[in-house]
Design a protein around this nucleic acid. Sequence first.
DNA 1: CTGAAAAGAGAACTTTTAGAGAACATACAT
DNA 2: ATGTATGTTCTCTAAAAGTTCTCTTTTCAG
Lengths: 197, 197
Amino acid sequence: MLTRVEEKLLQFITRFIAQNGHAPTLVEMGQALGIRSKGTVHRYVESLVDKGHLRRNGRGWRGVRLTGENDRRLTILPLQGRIAAGRPIEAIPGQREVNFSELLLGHDRYVLEVSGDSMIEAGILDGDMVVVRQADTADNGDIVVALIDNEEVTLKRLRRHGDRIELIPANSTLASMIYPADRVRIQGIVVGQLRLY
Amino acid sequence: MLTRVEEKLLQFITRFIAQNGHAPTLVEMGQALGIRSKGTVHRYVESLVDKGHLRRNGRGWRGVRLTGENDRRLTILPLQGRIAAGRPIEAIPGQREVNFSELLLGHDRYVLEVSGDSMIEAGILDGDMVVVRQADTADNGDIVVALIDNEEVTLKRLRRHGDRIELIPANSTLASMIYPADRVRIQGIVVGQLRLY
DNA sequence: CTGAAAAGAGAACTTTTAGAGAACATACAT
DNA sequence: ATGTATGTTCTCTAAAAGTTCTCTTTTCAG
């Protein structure tokens, strides 16, 4: 169980190592946390080592490593930075976090595995999973799970034209389908997409 | 059997942990319930522990956890079925589940936001997030975070040619880059990709 | 109505977390 | 080898959080 400052420090060290290939010094950690005392920072590092989140790498400078047995926060991942071709990882100010539980784990969410290439140009590939929020209405532009004629279910982008509904694939080799509104029932809105390698 | 206030408190704690990743303090609980006395709140927490709905996690601050069933639900999403254009949702036999904590939330995982289109044909778009597992080696075909000349960081697919390393973008308008192995350091392997709408 | 259970206030106390900084030890560059 | 940056070990202080009490009020079944 980490305290707030320990958590912040561990995140900082993780990001620092990802960016620079080696650990920060105590003073650098202190600057990142707004602590002026090396001794205090040292106590936090010791605590993280004790708790198994860090490992000593000899006793030289910058001598800590990230290590194995770790029970990181259950549902929150640190958003460490932005990566672009040809640039160093850009730290994101304000320590943003990705909270899976809030975004994906509501009671009305479920996951579907996508089969087929009809949404490939929206970056949804065959085999990906989409997180769907149960809903019976949607806005223009939403990617929806739609039931057509109580028979077929499909994943498409939605556009309304008066009393007609256009279901637009994201694949230039496929054509849109247009139906009267009463033949289409919205079953859910895609709120996330997930792929595992 | 829980009293009314105990019920409200348990709901609050569950929601709080889902949102914040850690338990609230007594004062925070009190604010949520409209109770000004820490002592009173403490009595309810004790009662919930006694009745088995909460568990103590050491004796530090924010040191309570949910017990078994409540806890596990937070990181597991039901995988409902497979969706394909023109077919009903196909139920998947055996009620598969997607366990986020296992796949994405290891200690050595972190998230980067992707900027740029260099991996667009692999379904990784500008603004997506990738989950990276810290690693210093990778296999052919892995998508890696690579540090070049200790300066540039880039996200590319890896291929080794003897002592040379080819970094292949997934964008037909961009060319591969080939470097001697000693100029490239692998920083991590992409193990997942995530997009939020 | 009456008594027990539930609910709340708050005082007094202990423990944990947090930060500062001094003093000293060790590692690194030159 | 030597100076400086860095790491280690302390002590002191304080704020925040948890714990243990006692007291009062409210609710509700019998």
